[in-house]
Design a protein around this nucleic acid. Structure first.
Length: 154
DNA sequence: GCCAACGTTGGC
DNA sequence: GCCAACGTTGGC
């Protein structure tokens, strides 16, 4: 089992939105970055654990935990001209973008803000804490995962 | 609102 | 293939 972190702007889609979905499950659509796509298409497996990160908000940080419940499959929003994620270069025969399905597990006992994550040397290797990082999906090591789970209880 | 970082586009 | 211009992300 592997660990991940996925970013979303809470104004657009927050962990509370996910919790309110039928079966507390939704597809993670709209990712339009090749590195992130490759992780969803090739590496994320059912049962993998994922931090839900709130970005571009007053206090960005890790809000909770979800789980991969369906592995990479084509992102249909790329085929929908009405969607803000439409991409004319994608097609049903040759899909360019992929998504996974995730299910809500729980909120952290408290949101752990980015500013706090940055203070811990043990997390210094996370792309998240580095300036200018724009990767919206990233792997998390088991060590980092456990470390952050200890932070929520402080 | 500003701006750094960085991915993408397109002219050559 | 290079690289300048442009667009987007996202912290602050």
């Amino acid at each position: 089992m592997k660990y991940w972190l996925m970013k979303s702007e809470p104004e657009v889609f927050s962990i509370d939105h996910l919790k309110q979905m039928p079966e507390q499950t939704d597809h993670w659509d709209g990712v339009r970055n090749y590195q992130a796509r490759n992780m969803m298409r090739d590496q994320m497996k059912v049962g993998d654990q994922v931090f839900f990160y709130h970005s571009n908000t007053k206090e960005p940080g890790i809000a909770g935990i979800m789980e991969v419940v369906r592995e990479g499959y084509p992102d249909h929003t790329a085929l929908d001209p009405e969607s803000r994620y439409f991409d004319s270069r994608s097609s049903r025969e040759n899909p360019r973008w992929y998504m996974v399905d995730v299910r809500y597990k729980r909120h952290l006992r408290r949101p752990v803000p980015l500013a706090e994550l940055k203070q811990h040397r043990a997390l210094g290797d996370m792309p998240l804490v580095h300036r200018g990082n724009r990767l919206s999906i990233m792997p998390v090591t088991e060590h980092q995962w456990r470390y952050i789970l200890e932070l929520e209880s402080i």
